[in-house]
Amino acid sequence: MSEPVFKKTSMLTDAPTHYCPGCTHGIIHRLVAESIEELGLSDRAIGIAPVGCSVFAYRYFNCDMQEAAHGRAPAAATGIKRAVPNSIVFTYQGDGDLLSIGNCEVNHAAARGEKICVFLINNAIYGMTGGQMAPTTLIGMKSTTSPKGRDPEVNGYPMRGAEMLATHEGTYYAARVAVNNTKNILAAKKAIKKAFEYQNAGKGLSFVEILSTCPTNWGLSPIESLEFLENKMMPYYPLGVLKDKGAE
């Protein structure tokens, strides 16, 4: 039998993930891991896991890892990158971790132009704690803390991470991608890989927001969840490159 044209990257450990069936965290883990391996950065990579559904990311990425306090991954990443400048540092954060409690840290890391990659996994809900409203929960979307649907009069409006991060001079690259179909998965991989390439070239902060699903807390099947992502999330969170200093 010949070499496979697709096999699991060595940058992922053999540990089975704890993610629910159909949760697209697993796809995003793979894209990040493959990008690191393909660019030959495995030995220099240091990842930072968040608090939230991907809290156990340190079990899955086959590189040195730190587990940071809720929202503080970009601060920890700053410390790591300053201490080991030759390392390739990435944070992997959910929308609650990054856009709610950690909004301050990520924006200041970007403003400082920290030479790190920040990956925001946006599934519009708090997964780990059981489906509460996130800063990204859509208007009208039900959650356990917005049981009648998010009401802007009460809860305000969902926050767009990639657009916000793109405003900082220190942000080198900002993009929003999705993992809902093969084409978009390939585009997401390209964006994630580009983020690592920029870091490897010593450029400022690269930010990739990845639209993801939460079948369990959305109360939808995995396939219905992809449809929700396509029909409800994408109109509010348009895909695209918000900023690319390397292309200017």
Binding site: I46, I48, Q66, A68, A69, R72, A75, A76, A77, T78, G79, I80, R82, A83, V84, S87, C104, E105, H108, R112
Partner: peptide
């Protein structure tokens, strides 16, 4: 050496977490 003026005490202690976590 490296001096970073953090955006808050919270960020400063987490920068310490990250850096000291590399053994320096």
């Amino acid at each position: 050496g490296t001096f970073v003026q953090a955006e808050s005490e919270v960020a400063a202690v987490n920068m310490l977490y990250g850096a000291a976590g590399t053994g320096v």
